[in-house]
Nucleic acid binder design. Sequence first.
DNA 1: GGGTACATGTAATCAGTTACATGATTTA
DNA 2: TAAATCATGTAACTGATTACATGTACCC
Lengths: 208, 208
Amino acid sequence: MNPERTSLATAQLTPTSYLVLGLIAREGPSTPYDLKRHVTATIGHFWSFPHALLYKEPPRLKDLGLLTEEREADGRRRRLFSITEAGRRALRAWLAHPSQQLTELRDLGLLQLFFADLEPATTPAIAHEQLALHRAQLAVYEEGRSTAPRGPRSTSPTVEHWRGVTLRMGLLYERAAVEFWAAVAAREPAPGSATARRRSKDGSAPKR
Amino acid sequence: MNPERTSLATAQLTPTSYLVLGLIAREGPSTPYDLKRHVTATIGHFWSFPHALLYKEPPRLKDLGLLTEEREADGRRRRLFSITEAGRRALRAWLAHPSQQLTELRDLGLLQLFFADLEPATTPAIAHEQLALHRAQLAVYEEGRSTAPRGPRSTSPTVEHWRGVTLRMGLLYERAAVEFWAAVAAREPAPGSATARRRSKDGSAPKR
DNA sequence: GGGTACATGTAATCAGTTACATGATTTA
DNA sequence: TAAATCATGTAACTGATTACATGTACCC
């Protein structure tokens, strides 16, 4: 009933907003480029946020009073954004309400496969392309696990822990994808199907 | 400099466009609601296309000369869209160029988990919510495999084959997701308890 | 000293989302 | 016959994408 209304701003916040808020809350005052670099190294592996977004979102959040801006005076004139108390509140409020949305799994390759019957001749090329792509991405994940985690700023063990955990889902997906597309490329039914088990027993090559 | 410009139209086609083109090419003349129903039963399981999209896209494609429209005269005044030869060409051209894009895996739950360190107390609720969601979705897939495939129109065995293959990737993802979130949930203390630190004797996710 | 990759933004467009609205069928 | 659900759209807004553009640092 109180007239103080900053909480309404919470309504029009998008995933991008929370990404920006969260990163700045954790890493401290950041420039859009800091954000871009961090995203690229982490969640950007499976959820792409074009850099223009990370330049445009902070000013929006500033208008909502969730961030403050401080612009350099010298040549580069970089914009440095810090989180406000209202920003932290919005972030906490978001985390306090577990998402009830399922994963959006948007994959052009799958969409093409979905229409494979319309142009059967093109299917092998599609499958091989996807297989190569996902193998490469899987390699990225597995390499990232061995190399030292190099965040743009100092990070605590806890941060490293959750970052790693999150990326692990990306890795699990890529493993499944590689399996899947390999099976398609081999013109086998996908792994786990009854036909696949029969096939692998008699070891016969799939025929056209 | 020739005024006939339909080939350029190919440029501004989106995934939604190809979805619509492909469905109409395969299923024959369709109303937006036909499209909606088909999508819901298939690819919509992991890539959501709001119904407003499927009502708006066909007129756009009609403007581009890729579809034709025929509107009922009676009460319902349904709009029935058919594919043109140009539409088929655009579709074939798309299928002939295998996508080189990786999967976009957009998941609010993962985003929240990514920031779990900022509000540790909320993490268990997030994990449990996601676990329940993905288990339910997995059940949908597994139920769909046993029930008779009920397309809105007649479908050939080949169509059924590829449709099933495509959906299987969704199923594989959900399996991975259930495993993942179960592990996260198990590693987290139960809500209110601060001592569930050494439960991971078995360390693995509960077997369903 | 010129190329090239990194860094840092802005602008225009538009697809996608959300909300609104109502008609037709089924069911209790 | 009231309620619920299915069916069928339209409209407004805006976040996201794409394209453009230039500056700066580093390396042959």
